[in-house]
Simulated scan of single mutants.
Amino acid sequence: MLWVKALHIIFVTTWMAAIFYLPRLFVYHVQALNESDTRGSERFKIMERKLFNGIMTPGAVLSIVFGLWLWLGYGISGAWLHAKLTLVLLLVAYHALCWKHLRAFRDDRNTHSDRYFRIINELPVFLLFGIVIFVVVKPF
């Protein structure tokens, strides 16, 4: 089970790195659009797609797979786990929100400002803090 735990941690780290970086790319993409930089915009579309499909989504899927494996293997239970899983579901919803924005940029339909993306870029930080605290401290 230690290998499963190690793989879970690796893929959570991968997922979180990508989930922190994608909205930052959206900020830069908006700035390129504001400067009428079509070549830059097309470059950002490629970077966003590759990050989302090649790193972020596989990281999310494998985090969840290995997390479920740990849960079933250890028979973990408790209120802290329910709280953690709630935050993980919110993180999955955030992932879906990023996918929605990715499609909007791909189709040249983005209506949000770089300020909006700077703000939503901070949301997963709070989810990560909560998840780690629930797992390590198990406050209830």
Results as ranks from 00 to 15, higher is better:
116 Y>N: 01
82 H>S: 13
128 L>H: 00
91 L>W: 01
130 G>E: 03
70 L>S: 01
140 F>A: 12
104 A>Y: 04
10 I>H: 02
133 I>R: 04
35 E>P: 06
64 I>P: 05
35 E>R: 15
26 F>L: 07
93 A>V: 14
126 F>S: 08
66 F>P: 01
119 I>A: 11
25 L>C: 06
75 G>K: 12
29 H>G: 08
75 G>C: 01
59 G>S: 09
64 I>E: 08
1 M>P: 03
138 K>S: 08
45 K>G: 11
91 L>F: 02
88 V>Q: 12
3 W>P: 10
52 F>S: 07
56 M>V: 10
95 H>I: 08
84 K>G: 09
12 V>N: 02
72 L>Q: 13
80 W>M: 04
25 L>A: 02
24 R>K: 00
135 V>D: 07
50 K>T: 09
125 V>A: 05
97 L>D: 08
96 A>T: 07
17 A>L: 15
21 Y>W: 05
65 V>G: 05
108 D>G: 06
130 G>L: 00
21 Y>E: 04
115 R>M: 14
1 M>G: 12
118 R>W: 07
104 A>H: 11
77 S>Q: 11
136 V>R: 04
85 L>E: 12
76 I>W: 14
25 L>K: 01
106 R>S: 13
43 R>A: 14
20 F>Y: 04
11 F>T: 13
106 R>Y: 10
47 M>C: 05
91 L>K: 02
87 L>H: 03
127 L>I: 11
49 R>E: 11
101 H>S: 06
32 A>V: 09
18 A>P: 06
22 L>P: 12
81 L>R: 10
103 R>E: 14
22 L>A: 11
129 F>K: 05
129 F>P: 10
93 A>F: 05
58 P>N: 08
31 Q>C: 03
30 V>W: 00
131 I>P: 04
74 Y>R: 14
106 R>M: 08
98 C>A: 10
20 F>D: 02
34 N>S: 08
89 L>T: 13
109 R>Q: 14
46 I>S: 12
6 A>Y: 12
31 Q>H: 04
135 V>P: 09
25 L>T: 05
139 P>D: 07
44 F>L: 08
77 S>G: 05
50 K>I: 11
89 L>Y: 02
137 V>F: 11
110 N>W: 11
28 Y>P: 00
27 V>D: 00
38 T>L: 11
76 I>Q: 12
112 H>L: 04
22 L>G: 06
50 K>F: 10
14 T>R: 04
28 Y>E: 00
11 F>Y: 09
75 G>E: 11
119 I>P: 09
110 N>A: 11
115 R>S: 14
22 L>K: 01
44 F>V: 10
101 H>D: 03
77 S>W: 11
97 L>Y: 10
7 L>N: 01
132 V>I: 13
41 S>P: 05
132 V>K: 03
121 N>A: 15
46 I>E: 13
94 Y>A: 03
68 L>I: 06
56 M>N: 00
124 P>L: 02
54 G>S: 05
